[in-house]
Each structure stands twice: as structure tokens, then as C-alpha cells.
Amino acid sequence: MKKVKVFGVWASPYSGRVEIALKWKGVEYEFVEEDLQNKSEELLKYNPIYKKIPVLVHNEKAVAESLIIMEYIDETWKADPIFPKDPYERAQARFWANFIDDNLMPSARTALLSTGEESEKAITELEQLFKVVENEIKEKKFFGGNNIGFLDIVALVVAFWIPCMQEFTAKNILTKEKYQLICIWSEKLLGCSIIKQNLPDKEKLREFYQTRFAH
């Protein structure tokens, strides 16, 4: 049995970022697919507070919440660091990661999955958030700087998952015409072999959305 386990869902961007961080480091692990409608006793045991995925278990010690897990991975396996060395840059990376998870992702879900006035309001908000991201990426090769790192892996939700969701919902909010810098960054990021090889199949993801979100 491998000493590292990840409890997650294959279609989840939160699980995906943890797996990519482990692959980046060359860490072998066992992936345990969870059914969120019927959560396993192990998941509830290892994450009794939030009862959510992903959870990383290393030598029977559990770490929950994807951003915290990624930091744990970087500090435990030192080779090929994903966090910046500079303390200020590390703080900035954490700030923007929280911005993505706390602001951009909830807005994107509402914009893409709701209807009517609720969706229209969220789309307006999401467009403003994309402008903020554009401004931060400006003049940098990647979101986090000159090399792919923690923040870019976190922001894969913008480069991959949101475009997939757009295709499913036919709501084209994030386009190259409106957000050229985000789209250029996305193309470079998705061209990285470790990332490209460890993303869900788009067609399978579309079917997942169809099953889960279609009304």
C-alpha cells in the first residue's frame, strides 16, 4: 500500500490541483475516488470537520483543503519547489490563490450554472474579476511569475475548468476577444506536459456536467 493517498473526485479542480502538485514532485500516491452523494467512512474519518474532498493522507496523517495540501506537499518533498522562495512572493501567491477560490470560482459557478437575473448579475461580476486577473498577469509569462508554480496550478480552474463549463452551458464569458492575456497564459500553461497529461478528458468532463447539472 502506498504511503500517500488522495481522496478526491476525478472531475474536481480541487482534486486536480493536488494530483498535479504530487506529479510535479514525482510523488507516488493512490487516488481514492469518492462518491459525494455517498461519502466513504474513510473520508469522514480523515476529514470529520468539513467532510469534503480533497484529503491527502501521508503516513496515516490527514491534511484537508487543497491550498493547504499543496503547501504541505511543497514543504514535505523539497525537490522541484512550486512555491516562490521569496517571502513576499509567497505571500502574494497565497493572496491570489485565495482570490481565485473565494471570489472568482463562486462567481463563475453562479454565472454559468444559474439562470435569469441571478446569472446576469454574476456574469457582470465575473467579467470584472477577469479584468483583475488580466491586470495581474500583464507583463508576466505566467500568473505566478516567469515559471509555472503554485499559483498557476491553482488557477488551472480559469485555464481549463471554466472554459469546459462554458462549452457545456454555451455562455461564452471568457473569450480571447475580451481577455487576450488570460487566454495566452492559458495556452502556455496547458502546453506544459505534466499539466496536459493530468487533466480530465474534456468529453468525459462534459458528460459529467450533463449528468450533474442538466435540468
Rank of each mutant, 00 (worst) to 15 (best):
F143M: 10
N47D: 01
K5E: 13
F95K: 00
E19Y: 01
K171R: 12
E75K: 10
E187D: 15
P13N: 03
E118Q: 13
E136G: 00
E60L: 09
Q210N: 11
I82V: 08
S119T: 10
F142L: 12
D101P: 01
E42M: 09
L44F: 07
P106K: 00
F83N: 13
K3M: 15
I194S: 10
P13F: 03
Q166R: 02
E187F: 03
Y88E: 09
A21R: 00
A111D: 06
A122V: 02
R212E: 12
P106G: 03
H215M: 13
P84H: 09
E89R: 11
W96L: 01
A97C: 01
K25D: 13
V57G: 07
Y72F: 12
F130S: 01
F83Q: 08
W161C: 06
K121H: 10
D74F: 06
L36R: 12
I162P: 00
V27N: 10
V154F: 00
A21M: 03
C183Y: 04
P106T: 00
D80E: 12
E117H: 05
P48D: 04
P84S: 09
D201S: 04
L174C: 08
K52V: 10
L205I: 08
N198H: 11
E65D: 15
A21D: 07
T169S: 11
R109Q: 11
G149R: 01
E41F: 07
V63D: 03
I153A: 04
L43K: 10
N147Q: 09
E117V: 15
W161S: 04
L43A: 13
S107V: 02
E127Q: 15
R109A: 14
K171D: 10
I153S: 03
F31D: 06
V57D: 12
R212N: 14
K138P: 00
K188A: 15
Y14P: 02
K138Y: 13
E34D: 12
W10L: 02
L56T: 07
V32S: 07
Q128P: 06
K140V: 13
E118I: 14
I148N: 06
V55T: 10
A62C: 06
L129T: 02
K39M: 15
M1S: 11
K52S: 09
L36C: 09
K78S: 13
E187H: 05
V9M: 15
C183H: 03
T169K: 09
Y46R: 04
L56G: 07
A122N: 03
S15K: 01
E127A: 11
E118M: 11
E33C: 13
A111F: 10
I148A: 05
P200M: 08
E134R: 02
M70Q: 11
F143S: 01
E207D: 13
M70W: 04
F99E: 05
I69M: 09
F142T: 04
F168I: 13
Y88W: 07
E42T: 12
G8L: 04
E203F: 05
S12T: 04
L181D: 14
L156P: 00
K202W: 00
C192R: 03
Q210Y: 05
V9Y: 15
N172D: 15
R94E: 00
